[in-house]
């Protein structure tokens, strides 16, 4: 059963990846191109200034062409990312189904996990450390920025898991509905405190066009919405078939 759910999760992830890639190709790549043009301009201006001071400047060789980066490179990255998340989604579903709430249908569990995953893994961490187009980050701070981003994701996921554990305890006393609001509040308090304590990162150059930054971040957000919505809806339908088949077999055994 776990193997089937894992495979179905990855297959759903592949489908979500195709949709996400199409969306990013159309709405994301133009912003990346503008950002890289901006970066090239800034680099050229800097080089000219260095040369004027008499410093020898060496350009960096291009390892992968822009065409490859924006084509097969983007496709590979998105497909690997989405397929992997699909598989993880299947595994989390295998654990959550029947445990989160014994009365929820597979479709409902899948939708709820997708909503929760989107909020905990992308939305909340990105409100603190938003996605940035090329030319924004300082290469010298990449270690720190990556560490902070993953710390924020880890705190967010841990707070979400904690919220589900807390929910189990609260349901008896406050009922299903009220427990949801209490643990949502608990999750928000934890991530707001974490966001407040973790250092801010803002390396956007003064002259960087605000519209490009906005469109880039919206493209990034849109891609994640497509990924998680596809996982939530299609995996639920797919899992329901597997689980229904299992129930029919079990019922057959009981009758025999």
């Amino acid at each position: 059963m776990v193997r089937t759910l894992l495979v179905r999760g990855m297959l759903t992830g592949i489908l979500a990846g195709l949709l996400t890639f199409g969306f990013l190709k159309v709405y994301g790549e133009p912003q990346v191109d503008i950002a890289i043009a901006f970066e090239t301009q800034m680099d050229l201006a800097k080089e000219a200034a260095e040369r004027a001071k008499g410093v020898a400047v060496q350009g960096q060789p291009e390892l992968v062409s822009r065409q490859v980066q924006a084509g097969i490179g983007l496709f590979t990255a998105v497909m690997v990312y989405c397929t992997a998340f699909g598989g993880l989604f299947g595994l989390v579903f295998a654990f959550a189904y029947g445990r989160v709430s014994g009365l929820l249908t597979p479709q409902a569990v899948s939708l709820m996990l997708a909503a929760v995953g989107f909020v905990a893994i992308y939305l909340v961490p990105n409100l603190k450390y938003p996605a940035n187009p090329p030319s924004i980050g300082d290469p010298a701070t990449i270690k720190m920025r990556t560490a902070l981003y993953f710390i924020m994701i880890a705190i967010s996921i841990a707070a979400m898991i904690g919220a589900f554990a807390l929910r189990r305890l609260l349901i008896v006393r406050f009922g299903d509905w009220n427990a949801n609001f209490i643990v949502a509040g608990y999750y928000l308090v934890i991530v707001v405190i974490a966001g407040f304590l973790l250092p801010a990162v803002n390396e956007v150059p003064q002259q960087f066009p605000a519209v490009v930054l906005w469109k880039f971040r919206m493209a990034s957000l849109g891609a994640q919405c497509i990924l998680w919505a596809t996982l939530g809806v299609l995996f639920g339908a797919s899992a329901e078939r597997v689980l229904a088949a299992g129930r029919v077999r079990a019922a057959g055994r009981v009758r025999a």
Binding site: L24, Q69, A77, V78, Y81, G137
Partner: peptide, 25 residues
């Protein structure tokens, strides 16, 4: 961090890395 030397993997998945929300450059 780097498990493989060089910058090929980074450069190849570069656009996806930015658009999927990871810190890059």
């Amino acid at each position: 961090t780097s498990l493989i030397s060089g910058m090929y993997v980074h450069e190849f998945v570069h656009d996806g890395r930015h658009l999927l929300g990871f810190p890059c450059h």
